[in-house]
C-alpha cells in the first residue's frame, strides 16, 4: 500500500518534469519545475528525511523559482510570429519525449535486477544535525566556501561597467 502511494507520487513528479520540458511558455516551465520540486519534497518526507524535505521545499521550490521567473521577466518577450515559428520547431523536436519516457519506464520495470551488494552496518547516529556538524564538518566549510564563490561570481558578473 505504501509503495503504491510512493509510485503515484513518483508518477506526478515525472508528469511535472514532462510539463516543465514540453510546455512552450518559459514561465509555465518554471512553475512546473517548482511543482516537481514540491512533489520531490513530499517524497523526501515519506523517505524519513524531513530536514532535507524542508530545504528542498524552501530553497528549490521557492528561491530557484524566483530566480527563474526574474530571469524570464528580465529578458524580452517574443513576438507572436516568433512564438508560432518556435512552437512548430519545438513540437518537432519534443514530440518523441513522452514515448521515450514510457518506453524507458516499461523496459526498466521489466528488468529483474539481482544485486548482491553487502549492506553496510546499520547507522548508529540517527540525528542529521549531529552527522552534519560533527561527522561531516568539512562539508559545512565547503558549503561556506562555495557560497562565497557564488556571491563573488555574481558581484563580478553584475559589476557596473560605467566605473571603468
Amino acid at each position: 500500500m505504501v509503495i503504491t502511494v510512493d509510485i503515484i507520487i513518483l508518477i506526478f513528479m515525472i508528469l511535472g518534469a514532462l510539463w516543465a520540458v514540453m510546455t512552450r511558455s518559459l514561465l509555465r516551465s518554471a512553475i512546473a519545475l517548482a511543482f516537481t520540486s514540491a512533489v520531490l519534497s513530499v517524497l523526501m518526507f515519506k523517505l524519513n528525511a524531513p530536514l532535507a524535505a524542508v530545504f528542498e521545499l524552501s530553497v528549490c521550490t521557492g528561491l530557484i523559482s524566483v530566480l527563474f521567473i526574474s530571469t524570464i521577466s528580465l529578458t524580452h518577450p517574443l513576438t507572436w510570429e516568433e512564438i508560432f515559428q518556435h512552437m512548430r520547431e519545438r513540437h518537432k523536436r519534443f514530440k518523441y519525449l513522452p514515448f521515450i519516457i514510457v518506453a524507458v519506464g516499461i523496459g526498466l520495470s521489466m528488468v529483474s535486477v539481482k544485486l548482491n551488494l553487502p549492506l553496510p552496518a546499520p547507522e548508529t547516529n540517527n540525528d542529521m544535525r549531529i552527522v552534519l556538524w560533527n561527522l561531516r564538518r568539512l562539508d559545512v566549510i565547503g558549503q561556506v566556501v562555495i557560497l562565497l564563490c557564488g556571491v563573488f561570481g555574481v558581484v563580478i558578473l553584475f559589476k557596473d561597467e560605467d566605473k571603468k
Binding site: 530545504f55 540517527n126 561531516r136
Partner: peptide
Amino acid sequence: GHIAQAQALVVTFI
C-alpha cells in the same frame, strides 16, 4: 539505513 548521512549530503547538494 543511513538516512541521516544521506540527508546531510542532500543539504550540501541543495
